[in-house]
Measured scan of single mutants.
Amino acid sequence: QIFVKTLTGKTITLEVEPSDTIENVKAKIQDKEGIPPDQQRLIFAGKQLEDGRTLSDYNIQKESTLHLVL
């Protein structure tokens, strides 16, 4: 699982696999929060994550925290 922290300070927990794409993660966030993926920007280690890449591409491991910017 990974954590996604929103600007409001809320933390969302997501069940993911390293092979999941960023697009996939955004879809999971939409399921939980109702935020359309095209409004979501995910930041990890100061980098904006691209939809077509996977979590493992960015070396995002379990218990990692991503930041969600709208």
Score class of each variant (00 low, 15 high):
Ser56Pro: 03
Leu7Ile: 15
Leu70Gln: 10
Leu49Asp: 00
Tyr58Val: 02
Asp57Leu: 03
Leu14Asn: 00
Gly34Glu: 04
Val4Ser: 00
Lys47Asn: 11
Glu63Val: 03
Lys28Trp: 04
Val16Asp: 00
Glu63Thr: 06
Arg53Ser: 07
Tyr58Ile: 03
Pro18Ile: 10
Ile35Ser: 04
Thr13Trp: 08
Glu33Pro: 01
Lys32Asp: 04
Glu63Asp: 15
Ile35Gln: 03
Leu68Tyr: 02
Asp20Pro: 01
Gln40Met: 14
Thr65Met: 10
Asn59Lys: 09
Ser56Glu: 14
Leu66Phe: 04
Phe44Arg: 03
His67Glu: 14
Thr21Tyr: 08
Gly46Arg: 04
Ala45Glu: 15
Leu55Pro: 01
Gln1Asp: 05
Ser64Gln: 09
Lys47Glu: 14
Gly9Leu: 03
Gln1Asn: 10
Glu50Trp: 05
Ile60Trp: 03
Ile35Tyr: 14
Leu66Met: 05
Gln40Asn: 03
Val16Lys: 01
Asn24Gly: 09
Ile60Arg: 01
Asn59Cys: 10
Pro37Tyr: 10
Glu15Val: 10
Leu66Asn: 01
Ile60Asn: 01
Phe44Asn: 03
Ile22Phe: 03
Thr8Asp: 15
Ala45Gly: 12
Asn24Lys: 12
Gly34Thr: 03
Leu7Gly: 12
Lys32Leu: 13
Lys10Ser: 08
His67Ile: 13
Ile12Asp: 00
Ile60Asp: 01
Gln48Asn: 12
Lys28Cys: 05
Glu23Lys: 12
Asp38Cys: 15
Ile43Ser: 11
Glu63Phe: 12
Ala45Val: 07
Leu68Lys: 00
Leu7Trp: 13
Asn59Ser: 07
Phe44Gln: 03
Ser56Val: 08
Val25Thr: 03
Thr6Met: 14
Thr13Tyr: 08
Gln48Thr: 15
Leu70Met: 11
Val4Ala: 02
Gln40Thr: 05
Thr65Trp: 08
Lys10Phe: 10
Arg53Asn: 09
Thr11Asn: 06
Asp20Arg: 02
Arg53Tyr: 14
Ala27Gln: 12
Lys32Phe: 08
Glu15Asn: 11
Gln39Asp: 08
Glu23Leu: 15
Gln61Cys: 08
Leu42His: 00
Asp51Pro: 07
Ala45Lys: 14
His67Cys: 15
Ala27Leu: 14
Asp31Val: 14
Gln48Met: 15
Gly52Lys: 12
Glu23Ile: 12
Ile29Arg: 00
Glu15Cys: 15
Gln40Ile: 12
Val25Trp: 01
Leu68Asn: 01
Ile35Pro: 04
Thr11Tyr: 09
Leu55Met: 06
Asp20Thr: 10
Ile60Gly: 01
Leu66Lys: 01
Thr8Arg: 10
Lys28Gly: 03
Gly34Ile: 02
Asp31Asn: 10
Leu14Thr: 01
Lys47Ala: 11
Lys62Ala: 15
Ile2Lys: 01
Thr6Leu: 15
Glu33Val: 13
Glu33Ser: 12
Lys47His: 13
Gly9Gln: 04
Thr6Asn: 06
Ala45Ile: 06
Ser56Asn: 09
Ser56Ala: 14
Ser56Trp: 07
Gln30Trp: 15
Pro36Gln: 07
Glu23His: 12
Gln39Val: 11
Arg41Tyr: 12
Val25Gly: 00
Thr8Asn: 13
Pro37Phe: 12
Asp51Gly: 07
Gly52Glu: 10
Ile29Leu: 07
Ala27Met: 13
Pro37Val: 14
Val25Asp: 00
Leu7Phe: 11
Ser64His: 08
Leu70Asn: 09
Glu15Phe: 12
Glu33Trp: 13
Val25Phe: 03
Lys62Ser: 15
His67Leu: 12
Val4Phe: 03
Ile12Cys: 03
Thr65Phe: 07
Glu50Cys: 14
Thr54Cys: 08
Ile29Glu: 00
Ala45Cys: 14
Lys62Met: 15
Thr54Asn: 06
Thr21Cys: 05
Pro36Asn: 07
Pro18Lys: 06
Leu49His: 00
Ser64Asn: 08
Pro36Arg: 08
Asp57Asn: 05
Thr11Asp: 04
Leu7Ser: 14
Lys10His: 14
Leu68Ile: 05
Arg53His: 11
Leu70Arg: 08
Val4Asn: 01
Arg41Trp: 09
Asp20Lys: 02
Leu49Gly: 00
His67Asp: 10
Ile2Asp: 01
Val4Gln: 00
Glu17Gly: 08
Asp38Ala: 12
Pro36Ile: 05
Val69Gln: 09
